[in-house]
Design a protein around this nucleic acid. Structure first.
Length: 941
RNA sequence: GGGUGCUUAGCUCAGUCGGUAGAGCGUCGCCUUUACACGGCGUAGGUCGGGGGUUCGAGCCCCUCAGCACCCACCA
């Protein structure tokens, strides 16, 4: 074995071997356990967030598999309509190829399929590299033929139940992508803007209360005034009460529009008069419905002014039109004032374009009408889709981890709107709806079915709806459709509901809630029992990682390492805004001054596990990953030592020869049981941070730091039977913790286990199919643990003196023991060789009661004193200073405890707590007096 | 406006039942001792954001203030 662990070859070997051996496939026996991967978008490559979540899922999957369950981790990818279409369009542009519209739908979609193949391949490669044990034989894609069939079925059945409708509604329109998007795909951010105050002249000589012939309206969007169909005031606003029912003459268009009263209006804001544009504002739309106002759409799909407007504005972009309208109104003396104003600007989350509320025909899922799918009114306003989704979580049939995310979930569902599911895109599932020439719409699974269902003759010309579904309308059946739904397959029967969904909070609405809705609706069953919500992986400064910010990290760059220059190059090429490159370069230099060291997959996975604290985002820390790379090396070398000590030797496995276990052997075995218990708890509660910490501490701080060291004198000086016992323990404990660690660090554990397992009497095979260790309470040995704790205190005491006095570690020290009790003597006798080896002391001598100690440095071992004679070794003043420091610490501790006990009401504390406090006080007092005594004795000499 | 988190060592974060404040990394000192310098041993470093309350006892529970982050809704 090499002196350092080199992850690359090891990883390559095992990931191929596991896959080829079929280890990732369900075993076919045991209790079913399944996880559906949140299908990554085929837009390119996986980022740190994926790697993090995949680590969690793989740990759960490997754990379940080792625990003997019939385990499926279902892989696949999502076609991601808008996102993928955009990527391909950009690629075409960069490559100088014909644009989408020039290519035409069929050719363009072919291009997207080419890209999909590429991207899915890359993603598959990344998933394989991370060691994710997904069942590749079941790999799915949301546009596979079978999956597409399920999507159609999904739509048609909802339609048949009356839960789908099509209508002309105001929707969020992206004027760049030229498609409707859902509420969730709109992100609003506060931006600096203006609030314009315009005078609208009153018609027919009407006057305001203060004698003006106009009223003043305030708006942040002057261009929409071309589509105004009313001015609204508050019904109880005395200033305008007499004007309600009168009209104003809309400037520039000279349309006469009414003044209406509606309590939507806030009297305090602006002048209390609101211009109403029902075709271009959601609130105005609602108000318009209440007052039967006409809708005047003044924009084309690209948000230029259309022919409804006066000729001078036609064809102008909305912002150009805005400028001209303000100028024209100003020329007419109708601009009252212009204020600076912060306003929330709604933008499409993909394009970044300012979204326009726009009247179009779209398909909707009814999520609000309080009826059942059978048309009956339900009790208490039951909705066929929404209500059961709320019930599923309220009843505890779905549990969120951490629990508080259910609040978010409920909040959204309780305020849900109908869902616009049609998109004016080319990449996606074409909506199974057909129109005849008269504009009638027919819904069925395909055209023949339409003709049959609606009894249409061959003479009726039908054309299919051009639109496609919102991507989420296909991913919301992911847990069912990947298992064969709508067919009643064996897989569906076995693995639906899945065991746990692992995902980020950012898609609780987009995806989680909708899967629950559809699962409940179609299967009458939740899609998963638990939802483990992970935090977001952020950059070292806590910023969200995004391509445009140039702070994304490819997980494989952490695995394989990357130089600073390469990283900068990666982050700054192909930017949408090339001018941000210098800023990105600076930040990269700051975050990773030396680039990123290669750490290997295991270390990266362990890093994610360690950072996976509950309900908190994680800042990625490359230093931490390097730390766990070191941990891998520690494991590697520990194994190297064990193999060197045990290979070709009698490890006491066959019980042919007598085997004797030492205190140290029984101690580490006992500790191991406790670790196994902890591991089980942490898996059950999804505390991967605590799991990784527990494993790390046991392996490094107990097994390596103490047990391996204790084994050295044992193997040199022990009897044959004791040596067999030590070897057996070395090998067996190692073999067990490799299994415990395997779900987090699959590669190194497998590599090492293959060499260790035979020594531990294990048959050949892969580690990943070995049973996960379970604690055996009968092997807990408190006496051995107490013995080793005593030993540790002993050794630490001596080491402290050595360390603080700067005595070379290798130099053997003389040691005297004063005040030893019977326990000390027996422990001293049985652990003599360990003490001499680890503390590097020459055979310690126990002083008799009447024997005076020479001038010595002191360490306390309970009431016993460990004395290192100072002569020629230790500076008197240094030891005095050291003691003084310890004395000061004890005094302060003692004072705190004394104050606590002195509290007149301390008697109210439980007796056990009181007893504990008194004991603590006695111990502090004893230690203090011992050290003070020692300080005095040295001082006078 | 409504909601959810967060504030603990220089940094990143644990802290479960209210009972003597922890880890990793970094710092500093000693050491190349045959598993490992990607190492060993030792050491320093904290008014637990501020204030108040409950309690025998508060990092933890309650109130309040401040700061940071995020989500939802959007008064033009």
């Amino acid at each position: 074995m090499d002196k350092t662990f080199e992850p690359r070859d090891v990883e390559a070997r095992w990931r191929d071997s596991w896959e080829q051996q079929g280890c990732y496939a369900p075993s076919g026996t045991g209790e079913p356990y399944s996880i559906m991967i949140p299908p990554p978008n085929v837009t390119g490559t996986l980022h740190m967030g994926h790697a993090f979540q995949h680590t969690v899922m793989d740990a759960l999957t490997r754990h379940a598999r080792m625990a003997g369950k019939d385990t499926l981790w279902q892989p696949g990818t999502d076609h991601a309509g808008i996102a993928t279409q955009m990527v391909v369009e950009r690629n075409l542009k960069l490559a100088g190829e014909p644009a989408r519209l020039d290519l035409g739908r069929e050719k363009f979609v072919e291009k997207v399929w080419e890209w999909k193949k590429l991207s899915a391949g890359t993603i598959g490669g990344q998933i394989r590299r991370m060691g994710s044990s997904v069942d590749w034989s079941r790999e799915a894609f949301t546009m596979d033929p079978a999956y597409s069939k399920a999507v159609i079925e999904h739509f048609v059945r909802l339609h048949e139940a009356g839960l789908i409708y099509r209508g002309k509604r105001l929707v969020n329109w992206d004027p760049v992508l030229l498609t409707a998007i859902s509420d969730l795909e709109v992100v609003s951010e506060e931006e600096n803007g203006k609030l314009w105050h315009f005078r609208y002249p009153l018609a027919h000589g009407a006057k305001t209360a203060d004698g003006n012939h106009h009223i003043v309206v305030a708006t942040t969007r002057p261009e929409t005034m071309l589509g105004d169909t009313a001015v609204a005031v508050h019904p109880e606003d005395e200033r305008y009460a007499h004007l309600v029912g009168k009209t104003v003459l809309l400037p520039l268009t000279n349309r006469e529009i009414p003044i209406v009263a509606d309590d939507y209006v806030d009297r305090e804001f602006g002048t209390g008069c609101v211009k109403i544009t029902p075709a271009h504002d959601f609130n105005d739309y609602a108000l318009g419905q209440r007052h039967q106002l006409p809708l005047i759409n003044i924009f084309t799909p690209t948000a230029t002014v259309n022919d409804e407007a006066p000729e001078v504005y036609r064809g102008l972009d909305r912002y150009v039109a805005r400028k001209k309208i303000v100028a024209d109104l100003d020329a007419l003396g109708l601009v009252d004032k212009i204020d600076d104003h912060k306003l929330k600007v709604p933008r499409g989350d993909r394009s970044g374009a300012v979204v326009e509320p726009y009247l179009t025909d779209q398909w909707f899922v009814d999520l609000t009408r309080e009826t059942r799918h059978d048309g009956q009114a339900g009790p208490g306003g039951l909705h066929a889709i929404t209500r059961p989704a709320i019930d599923a979580v309220e009843s505890g049939r779905i549990r969120f981890v951490p629990d508080n995310w259910k609040t978010t979930y409920f909040q959204w569902l309780n305020n849900i709107q109908d869902w616009c599911i049609s998109r004016q895109l080319w990449w996606g599932h074409r909506i199974p709806a057909w129109f005849d020439d008269a504009g009638n719409v027919y819904v069925a699974r395909d055209e023949p079915e339409v003709r049959a269902k609606y009894k249409l003759g061959a003479d009726v010309a039908l054309r299919q709806d051009e639109d496609v579904f919102d991507t989420w309308f296909s991913s919301d059946i992911w847990p069912m459709a990947t298992l064969g739904w709508p067919e009643k397959t064996e897989a569906l029967n076995k693995w639906y509901p899945s065991s746990v969904l692992v995902t980020g909070f950012d898609i609780i609405f987009f995806w989680v809630a909708r899967m629950v809705m559809m699962g409940q609706y179609f299967q009458n069953e939740v899609p998963f029992h638990e939802v483990y919500i992970t935090g977001l992986v952020r950059d070292p400064e806590g910023n969200k990682m995004s391509k445009s910010k140039g702070n994304v990290l490819d997980p494989l760059d952490v695995v394989d390492g990357i130089t600073l220059d390469e990283l900068i190059k990666k982050r700054t090429t192909g930017l949408m805004k090339p001018e941000t490159a210098p800023k990105i370069e600076n930040k990269t230099r700051k975050d990773y001054p030396n680039g990123i060291e290669a750490v290997g997959v295991d270390a990266l996975r362990f890093t994610f596990a360690a950072l996976a604290t509950q309900g908190r985002d994680i800042r990625f820390d490359a230093g931490r990953a390097a730390g766990y790379r070191n941990f891998c090396n520690k494991i590697w070398n520990a194994a190297r030592y064990v193999l060197m000590s045990c290979e070709g030797q009698d490890c006491g496995i066959d019980d042919a020869q007598p085997v004797e276990l030492s205190d140290a052997d029984r101690w580490i075995i006992s500790k191991l049981q406790k670790l196994e218990t902890e591991a089980a708890e942490h898996f059950a509660s999804y505390r991967f941070d605590l799991l990784s910490t527990a494993l790390y501490q046991f392996i490094w701080n107990e097994y390596c730091d103490w047990y391996l060291e204790l084994s050295k004198p044992a193997l040199q000086q022990g009897s044959e039977a004791q040596q067999r016992g030590t070897r057996r323990t070395l090998v067996r404990v190692l073999e067990v913790w490799l299994r415990l660690l395997h779900p987090l660090m699959p590669f190194i554990t497998e590599e090492v286990w293959q060499r260790v397992a035979p020594l531990a009497g294990k048959v050949a095979g892969t580690l990943m199919l070995q049973p996960y260790p379970i604690a055996d309470a009968s092997r807990i040995d408190e006496a051995a643990e107490a013995d080793i704790e005593w030993l540790k205190t002993f050794i630490l005491g001596v080491r402290q003196i050595r360390g603080e006095m700067n005595i070379a570690p290798g130099k053997p020290l003389p040691l005297l023991i004063q005040g030893a009790g019977a326990d000390d003597l027996s422990r001293l006798a049985k652990m003599k060789s360990a003490i001499e080896f680890l503390a590097r002391v020459e055979s310690p001598r126990v002083l008799s009661d009447d024997e005076a100690a020479p001038q010595s440095a002191t360490a306390l071992l309970g009431t016993t004193k460990l004395l290192v004679p100072m002569a020629g070794l230790i500076d008197k003043d240094a030891e005095l200073a050291r003691l003084a420091k310890q004395i000061a610490k004890l005094e302060s501790d003692l004072e705190k405890t004394a104050t606590r006990i002195a509290n007149p009401n301390f008697g109210k504390a439980p007796p056990a707590v009181q007893e504990q406090a008194h004991q603590h006080q006695r111990k502090l007092a004893a230690d203090l007096s011992a050290l003070q005594d020692q300080h005095q004795r040295i001082a006078i000499l």
